[in-house]
């Protein structure tokens, strides 16, 4: 396992994000399942039962980069929609490839410089670091206040 992957998985662990094997995912795909158009999600395309991420119980999505320093998943808003699909459902499964790993946020900016250039920018770039959470009531940590209560990560088998 590469050092970047080791660090990334360690960070996910600290954020309460399980890293599961593709085979283990099957059991999680219950209720209304939305699967995004990312190529890495193809293996689960047949499991989709819902076309609108707003109504899904589970969303399976790809991503654009993985950040080892913080355990973050970077998402561009296009060409594949990632805003709703990583925000609305109680359970969000992100599929990423080891080849997408970079050390830090700055390297994501370098990699996607073309998508951040004024006049040609993607509408939105988001770094997702763990599930939705709050500590507003007596500093008690509660997950899923607006976004996903649970985030699960899967390494694509072909390396992404």
């Amino acid at each position: 396992m590469s050092e970047l992957r080791r660090q990334f998985e360690e960070r996910l662990g600290q954020l309460g994000v399980p890293v599961v094997l593709p085979a283990e995912l099957e059991a999680m795909l219950t209720g209304k399942v939305f699967v995004s158009e990312h190529a890495v999600c193809k293996p689960w395309a047949a499991r989709a039962t819902c076309a609108d991420p707003r109504e899904a119980d589970v969303t399976v999505t790809g991503c654009d980069a993985l950040v080892a320093e913080t355990g973050s998943v970077a998402l561009l808003s296009a060409p594949v929609e990632t805003r709703l699909s990583t925000l609305m459902a109680p359970l969000n499964v992100v599929v990423g490839g080891e080849r997408q790993l970079v050390a830090d946020m700055e390297l994501v900016f370098e990699q996607f410089a073309g998508r951040l250039r004024p006049g040609a920018a993607a509408a939105c770039l988001t770094f997702v670091t763990g599930p939705s959470r709050t500590t507003d009531i007596e500093k008690t940590l509660i997950f899923g206040v607006h976004g996903p209560k649970k985030l699960v990560f899967v390494f694509a088998e072909d390396g992404g």
Binding site: T70, S72, R83, L84, A122, A123, T129, G147
Partner: peptide, 23 residues
């Protein structure tokens, strides 16, 4: 290490090069 969601908003959803469904 980082806030759960860090978003760089760069404009309205694209309408020319393939309609973006959200935003």
């Amino acid at each position: 290490r980082l806030t759960a969601y860090t978003t760089f908003i760069q404009g309205p959803r694209a309408r020319s090069s393939g309609e973006e469904p959200s935003g």
